[in-house]
Simulated scan of single mutants.
Amino acid sequence: MKKTFVLVVLFVFPIVVYLFFASGVNNFGKLPVLTENIQDVSAYNAQVTFEDKITILGFLGADVDLKKGNAFNLNQKVYKRFYEFKDFQFIMIVPKGTESKVEELQKELNELADVSKWKFIFIEPSEIVSVFSSLKTNLELDASYSTPYVFIIDKDKSLRGRDKEEDNAILYGFDATSVAEINNKMIDDVKIILAEYRLALKKNNANRDI
């Protein structure tokens, strides 16, 4: 029995891990950098930063109740799948005054998963606009300072996405209202960036051994 367990660990597990990441390879091989030097949220909350983190960034806006469906989609499809990876986090930016609504949302999310890596930043509307503008996308915030789109920010505070979609459009973010887009594009791209950093870590470790 012990021999079987050891064989599984040595041979089967590495294959499973390989297939997991291999399934996330899209046409780009490496997820393109679309915008560098995104404004860091640490300017508004010293406990939270994009630096050295792989971040899913969202803007829930003032009508938090109306965005619960988006949050649940992301929680079930993306967060629960990847939150155990080191340095992975969700950051949601919301206007000041929504604290009680966010607390209610956190309680509901916590019933489904450990939400310790969901971070909420409460800032003024003008500051929300400033962070969003630093992404330099073709998207806009609505009147409540929200957008259904979420964004992948890498450890160097750069926006990652796709620079050549089927219609030659740039994919800056992912529509959290669309389960199909989350399943078919976002999960794929999160796998790629996680694999990218894992490979870089292995390379650095190998260089140290040399």
Rank of each mutant, 00 (worst) to 15 (best):
196 E>R: 12
129 V>A: 15
80 K>G: 14
189 D>P: 02
147 T>V: 06
30 K>L: 03
172 Y>R: 00
167 D>E: 11
86 K>V: 05
59 F>S: 01
151 F>Q: 07
152 I>L: 04
132 F>P: 07
150 V>I: 11
103 E>V: 00
134 S>W: 13
112 L>E: 14
178 S>V: 00
112 L>F: 11
106 Q>F: 05
146 S>W: 06
178 S>N: 01
131 V>C: 10
116 S>P: 05
209 D>H: 05
105 L>T: 11
17 V>L: 14
52 D>H: 13
38 I>A: 00
2 K>V: 13
125 P>I: 01
92 M>D: 12
52 D>K: 15
13 F>E: 01
66 L>V: 01
110 N>K: 04
161 G>C: 04
125 P>H: 05
181 E>K: 03
206 A>W: 04
67 K>Y: 07
5 F>V: 14
48 V>A: 10
74 L>D: 07
106 Q>W: 02
75 N>Y: 05
136 K>S: 10
144 S>D: 12
62 A>H: 09
199 L>E: 13
74 L>M: 15
66 L>H: 01
184 N>A: 09
76 Q>E: 15
102 V>G: 02
133 S>L: 07
45 N>F: 08
12 V>Q: 01
104 E>C: 03
177 T>A: 12
6 V>P: 01
181 E>N: 01
122 F>R: 08
187 I>S: 11
188 D>W: 03
203 K>H: 04
2 K>Q: 08
167 D>F: 07
84 E>Y: 13
48 V>T: 15
194 L>D: 07
186 M>V: 07
134 S>A: 06
35 T>C: 04
11 F>V: 14
32 P>N: 06
90 F>D: 01
204 N>L: 12
98 T>P: 12
198 R>T: 07
21 F>N: 09
135 L>N: 09
110 N>F: 07
144 S>N: 13
30 K>M: 01
94 V>K: 14
1 M>P: 06
164 K>W: 05
39 Q>P: 01
102 V>L: 01
77 K>G: 05
205 N>E: 11
179 V>G: 00
111 E>F: 13
104 E>I: 09
103 E>T: 04
77 K>E: 15
193 I>N: 11
48 V>G: 08
157 K>N: 13
178 S>W: 00
24 G>H: 04
120 F>C: 02
123 I>E: 00
116 S>R: 14
25 V>T: 15
125 P>K: 03
49 T>Y: 08
51 E>F: 09
